[in-house]
Every structure is written in C-alpha cells, then in structure tokens.
C-alpha cells in the first residue's frame, strides 16, 4: 500500500524535500493573488458592504479548521489500526496549525459578526460547535505531551481525535439542523455556490492558499520531528556508550 512506502523516514524526507519548493511557491502565489483580489478587486457586497472582505480570511480559516481535524482523524486511524509510524507525527504536527486556524475563524468571525449581526458572540449551534473544536485541538495537544512515553501520548491523542470527530459533521450541518444566527452554507451546498463569481474566485484562491500553507508547514514539521527523533537516537547511543 502507498503508505507503507512512506513509512521509511528517509524516503519520506526525499519526497518532502522534492515537493517543498513547489508547495512554498504555490502557497505564496495563491495567498498573494487571493489577498490582492480580495482587498482590491472584489466588489463590496450589496448588503454587507466592505465588511464582506473579512470573508476572505474568515471562511478559509474555518475550512482549514475542519480539514486539518479530518486529517488528524485519518492519521489517528492509521496510527491506531495500521500502526503507521509517520501517522503520529502527522497528527501532532497538524494539531497546533488546526488550533491556530480555529482560533482565527472564531476571532475573525466575531469581528465580522459585531457589525453585521450586532453581537460579538451567540451560543448558537455553529459557533458553539466550532468553539468545541478549538478545545478538542487544545486537548489533543495536551494529551500528546502529557505522558513521559510519547507513544502513549500519541495513542491517547489519537483516541481523543476520533471521539471528537463526530463534531465535524455537526459543525457542517449545524446551520441546517437547528435555528442558528449563522447563515447556511454559501459554497459547499447542493445547488452550487450562492456567491457571485467576483467574490468566489478570491475566496477559492485563499482557500487553496491556506491549504497549501498547511501542507507546507506539515511537511516542514514532520521533517523537523524526524530529525528530532534522530537526535534522540543519538542521545540514547551516547548514553549507552557512557
């Protein structure tokens, strides 16, 4: 299977190093064009005016909050069932990034909600479930480092990730299942997007840019953790020799 092939760190590092320059380049191009289009080219909204530009940083952050958690859940399954050695690294490297995106989604959402809705926060199903997601990320990061034995921490975190995964579809469908202040989906919905193309394209650019940003950082962090593992091996060899 494909992931067996990359269980070998040296092979993974070779692939990561080959791919990284392209990831960085694509990230920069997509974020730069998304920012430019979103701030200077895209029109104001007919009802939300210029405040709609917050969409270009709020929505991609929210998408990433869920996407990264889903990746962690997949990595957790690979770790728990298949014992894939890189899965734990992928999960622990992803969690802080996902937490950061969730935080951004919450704060930019507040900054958008205050002028448009009239409040910084409500405990509706959408906002509450995203806040829960943020706590799940923090919990995952805490569990990862809570044990002397990193393998135990990784396993506990993996279990938490899978238990918490039920929150992801809840977030997605909260605006459909319950009365919420947050409006229903504008992009990923049956019937297609309800966003005008002049606004949709900058959003897509930013969404892809954020995704590549995550992938770039993920590769760098796994690489960093693999080197960290090598250093710890040297540490234990040094101890043995002493």
């Amino acid at each position: 299977m494909a992931f067996d092939y990359f269980a070998n760190p040296a092979r993974f590092l070779r692939l990561a190093n080959a791919v990284l320059p392209w990831c960085v380049g694509a990230t920069v191009i997509l974020l730069a064009s998304g920012l430019y289009l979103g701030l200077f080219v895209a029109p104001a909204d007919y009802q939300q005016g210029e405040s709609v530009r917050i969409m270009y940083v709020h929505v991609p952050a929210a998408w990433m909050a869920m996407f990264v958690y889903t990746n962690i859940a997949i990595a957790s399954i690979l770790s728990l069932i298949w014992r894939h050695p890189l899965a734990d690294l992928a999960a622990s490297a992803s969690a802080p990034i996902g937490a950061a995106f969730t935080f951004l989604a919450l704060v930019t959402g507040s900054l958008w909600g205050k002028p448009m809705w009239g409040t910084w926060w409500v405990w509706d199903a959408r906002l509450t479930s995203v806040l829960i997601l943020f706590f799940l990320y923090l919990g995952h990061m805490a569990l990862t480092h809570a044990f002397d034995n990193p393998a135990r921490g990784a396993k506990a975190a993996a279990v938490l990730a899978l238990v918490g995964f039920v929150n992801v579809p809840i977030i997605k469908f909260s605006v459909d299942w319950w009365n919420t202040l947050h409006q229903p989906a504008s992009v990923f919905r049956a019937g297609g997007p309800t966003i005008h193309p002049d606004m949709l394209w900058p959003l897509i650019a930013m969404g892809l840019g954020y995704t590549l940003f995550y992938i770039t950082l993920l590769l760098l962090r796994i690489k960093s953790d693999l080197i960290g593992a090598r250093l710890r091996t040297l540490d234990s060899l040094r101890q043995d020799a002493a």
Binding site: Q183, S186, T194
Partner: peptide, 9 residues
C-alpha cells in the same frame, strides 16, 4: 440575520 447570498450591488 443575513442569508447566504453574496453579490455586488
């Protein structure tokens, strides 16, 4: 509460 539609004026 606003809806999910976004378009220029």
């Amino acid at each position: 509460k606003h809806d999910e539609n976004y378009m220029p004026k």
